[in-house]
Write a protein that binds this DNA or RNA. Sequence first.
DNA 1: AATGAATGAGACTTCATTCAT
DNA 2: TATGAATGAAGTCTCATTCAT
Lengths: 201, 201, 201, 201
Amino acid sequence: MAVKKRRTQAERREEAETRLLVETIKLVGECGYDGFTLADVAEAAGYSRGLPAHYFGSKEGLLARVVEYVTQDYHDSIAKNPEILHGLPALENLVHTYVRVNGAPIRTFQILTAQALVRSGLKMTMSRLTNQSLKSIEKEIRAGIELGNIRKDIDVSAHAAMIYSFLRGQLAFAAFDRDFDQEAAGKEFIETMRARLGLGN
Amino acid sequence: MAVKKRRTQAERREEAETRLLVETIKLVGECGYDGFTLADVAEAAGYSRGLPAHYFGSKEGLLARVVEYVTQDYHDSIAKNPEILHGLPALENLVHTYVRVNGAPIRTFQILTAQALVRSGLKMTMSRLTNQSLKSIEKEIRAGIELGNIRKDIDVSAHAAMIYSFLRGQLAFAAFDRDFDQEAAGKEFIETMRARLGLGN
Amino acid sequence: MAVKKRRTQAERREEAETRLLVETIKLVGECGYDGFTLADVAEAAGYSRGLPAHYFGSKEGLLARVVEYVTQDYHDSIAKNPEILHGLPALENLVHTYVRVNGAPIRTFQILTAQALVRSGLKMTMSRLTNQSLKSIEKEIRAGIELGNIRKDIDVSAHAAMIYSFLRGQLAFAAFDRDFDQEAAGKEFIETMRARLGLGN
Amino acid sequence: MAVKKRRTQAERREEAETRLLVETIKLVGECGYDGFTLADVAEAAGYSRGLPAHYFGSKEGLLARVVEYVTQDYHDSIAKNPEILHGLPALENLVHTYVRVNGAPIRTFQILTAQALVRSGLKMTMSRLTNQSLKSIEKEIRAGIELGNIRKDIDVSAHAAMIYSFLRGQLAFAAFDRDFDQEAAGKEFIETMRARLGLGN
DNA sequence: AATGAATGAGACTTCATTCAT
DNA sequence: TATGAATGAAGTCTCATTCAT
């Protein structure tokens, strides 16, 4: 009881911040980067109008945190790749994972990506995310070469860029059109990777 | 004489509108969909602050015209594919074309694409554009099968979707990072297409 | 008539700006630098709430203009010193002039002077004013030495600083207390100047 | 033991209040009367954001205490005039004292003086301070006449007002411009006083 | 036809103050 | 007693839009 009480202040703050972030993500996905007000966020989260600015300093500050939050969340879901797979199977698994992501967060992610083109604050976070993704694909390609399930004569970085381009294109589609058959395109991409990266027979 | 004058007036209007549109496109690419004012547009084009509203009625009206203009322009530049190539070579050429596009228009395109997620007016235009692109890729795959430079056992629509996903992912990168080596990723993608779509040796 | 019409736009603007400035001066004198809002200014001048920001960019911008306006006004009234007097008589006349200034503008001036201590934008304008005043006093002292109505062995800049200090202190009193007998203190100061600067008999 | 604890509590409170006041004075001097927040004060003093309101009730309450504190402090420093001097030498010493005061407290004093023009609460305190200063100057002039080191035919109150005007003007300069040569102007003023007030020879 | 003055709604942001812990 | 979470009022500033010229 005492413990709970002592924790309460910090918890209240933590909870309030999280709820504001979550509602912001929804609103960005529904209304776009500029299509909602800080007051909308507060109301949706059930707080007073001034709280978002109070916590995050500014609308841009709030959205920078949203980017972190979304990309972290996103990273976490990607990182669940089983540690058993390496090389080509791991890449195939990665494609599967991307292809299954959907819903509001993707729309938000797409919108924030576009905003990052014109807001230097967001751009840095996005760059970091992109580089991490590229590096982990490259690592997997090299692991595959090592393990012998990927051919040796591949331009590792160019190929990683190609794979990541496809995945980003997929996300753009998924955000745009719910009827788009991600599974089919993903499956086709996996076949294509096998034909290009596999050892032949 | 009167006719000439009337023409001159119409021409001047036409020129003014075009300049306003062109400057708006630049501004969207630099500042985002909502990151500029009508006065900015007017100033950049060298006219008085009131002219954009005078011509286009409202900011929304101006942006609607911008979307038309950009997608038309975009289409025109892609459509320049030589009529001589068909099937796999045509697809390879398409990749080359995309991979060479760069600069401000891409940024504007990316930004408009993101806005389309939350503006139904834009969404329709963008859907049309996407479908046209997909259809033309599918047509080329079928032509390749017909001509014998693409293997028969391909899921045409899934493969077209995959190709288009890659191209869109490429654009996203190109807009975001000027240092991204589009040529290398494009070349790699062409190799990959050959391995997957080609007839073997 | 045509001329009048052509002028009207510019005149409207000019008049609006002037009225906003004049009302701001009143408000600063009555309520202090932070004791009124831009909306108050607009309302007092009979315009819409947004106009002050529209014209002057920001509250600080408006107040910077007020400083210019007040000091200019103030300078003009000082500059009316007859060109016939030079040296000691001119200085005596200057004291008389200062000593007669009163009313709202002085309060405003005092308040802006204090704000200049913490707002670099205002500080520059104030520095300029101070230097101009000091220089013109120094000039007059030198003229007096030349003409022979001021003794030669005076530290010109130190004495100018002393005179100006007195004048500024006078203004502070005048702003603070309407009952303060400026005339008496001014007369006394003139006597004192004569005793110090004059040639003896 | 209980007593000691109680004292310790009271002392801690006293110390905290003093530190808050001192930091507020600095902040007024740096940022102006309204240019800082209660949180700024708390942070500068090393306490929690809520403490200033907790102790002083409101921002206005805090500032009222600041005025008391500053004027008291100010008085104390002026009052250190040695009791040995009287008449003209005492006045000369007073000028020296004023001329040596500098730094943050002067800025704060100037800012409070300006605020007094628009806050009746402050105005009374400032009036009292001014009157005390004037009276003590007048007293000294009379003492000088009595002692024979000041000439008899002086308008005592007008002359006191003149001296005080100079001193206040000096303070305004000192607050505004650190490079202003107070010593030189003060020395010049003392010479001037001698020429005017002294007995001649 | 074109300009630009003026409006006014609405967003962001700040921060003294209250109150639960 | 002291903290700091949360409120909410109020102000600044922006800008699409209207309208007189």
